[in-house]
């Protein structure tokens, strides 16, 4: 029976990996500019420097579309999706609540405040790095405030943390709105564009910016998965077997927050990935985080790139931004979860 379960889990990983590869290729091949599949592979091989691809006849336009427009967009999508999926799973574990998501401790509102500050100051035109850094600083600040409000005598009570997160989010949201009221319309538009997360116009710079923190964050979180398992059994149980509960919570919160913030700053705020992906994976694979976290990374990437591709294909030539797509697909599922948990509570 155990062998059977293991077999099922491995095959799920393989299926998700294949699906991700498929979605990536599909996303590369399809779009407003028609690029033949052979040319697409040609561009990839040529850029990577594989032997045998050097002699292919490729137009500069094809190279630009595949290598400089579509591929970075997809890679950012993979990174952001993986980051949101893993952070969501970790935060749900830390809070012991399967409805928690990265937004809940102030990450999103902090990032928004950072972004709007950058736009208000007018520094966004100078370099594309300014806004991400402001957003990152804002979310780290928000998480720091939330946690320091909650810390009492070396303990981080979960309920207080949730409430403090909500309070901090509301405060930062108010400040953001305050700044917005003084902005001119052009800048307002820029902010709105960022608020509804999207992957369009992502360039290699964005990939370089996100790849380090996101991969490190995911790796460390996967490393700490066994500790998270014990933590999820409950604070008392965890302390009884010698888990340094407060320190572990702090570390996990911090890493998850930085990972999420990095994702948010390259893509804007994208909701529901951090909520739905861990939830689905937990239903399919169980709560063992050493399996769950890698699966969430894979599934998050798959979901986000899938949503983005769909958004590009539904009403060409217009695009539906990925933040809208995830919300459109995510909300019904979220409501379904909510309804089911209510029914579970009554029976």
């Amino acid at each position: 029976m155990i062998a059977e379960v293991r077999h099922r889990k491995i095959s799920l990983f393989i299926i998700m990996g294949l699906l991700l590869a498929g979605v990536i290729l599909m996303s590369l091949a399809w779009g407003q500019v028609q690029v033949p599949v052979a040319a697409m592979f040609g561009v990839l091989g040529n850029q990577v420097g594989l032997p045998g691809f050097q002699n292919m006849a490729l137009t500069p336009e094809q190279t630009a579309v595949i290598w400089h427009i579509r591929l970075p967009r997809i890679l950012v999508g993979v990174l952001v999706g993986a980051a949101l999926g893993v952070s969501g799973a970790v935060l749900q574990g830390v809070f012991g609540n399967s409805l928690a998501d990265p937004g809940i401790i102030g990450v999103s509102s902090g990032a928004a405040l950072g972004a709007v500050t950058a736009i208000a100051l007018g520094v966004t035109a100078n370099s594309i790095y300014y806004m991400p850094f402001f957003a990152l600083a804002g979310s780290v600040l928000a998480v720091a405030i939330t946690v320091s409000l909650t810390m009492r005598a070396g303990k981080i009570p979960v309920m207080t943390l949730l409430l403090a997160g909500v309070a901090v989010s509301m405060l930062l949201g108010a400040i953001t709105s305050g700044i917005l009221t003084f902005m001119n319309e052009y800048r307002l538009r820029e902010f709105l564009f960022w608020m509804v997360g999207g992957l369009d116009y992502r360039r290699w710079e964005h990939v370089y910016l996100a790849v380090g923190p996101v991969l490190c964050g995911i790796l460390v979180l996967c490393f700490l998965a066994r500790h998270l398992n014990v933590l999820v059994l409950g604070e008392q149980e965890a302390r009884a077997v010698g888990v340094p509960v407060a320190a572990l919570r702090l570390i996990l919160l911090f890493i998850a927050a930085v990972t999420t913030a990095t994702a948010v700053c390259v893509s804007g705020t994208i909701g529901f990935v951090g909520l739905i992906v861990p939830h689905m994976m937990r239903m399919l694979l169980g709560p063992e985080h050493r399996i769950l976290l890698p699966a969430c990374a894979l599934a998050g990437a798959l979901f986000l790139v899938g949503c983005d591709t769909l958004g590009r294909l539904i009403i060409p030539p217009a695009e539906i931004r990925v933040g809208i797509m995830t919300a459109l697909l995510g909300t019904p599922y979220f409501l379904f979860l909510l309804r089911r948990s209510h029914q579970g509570g009554e029976s």
Binding site: G96, S98, V232, L233, G234, E237, A240, G286, P287, E288
Partner: peptide, 11 residues
């Protein structure tokens, strides 16, 4: 071993 342990997430 404490009383009333509540284990969520289906371990």
């Amino acid at each position: 071993m404490q009383q009333d342990v509540n284990i969520s997430f289906g371990f």
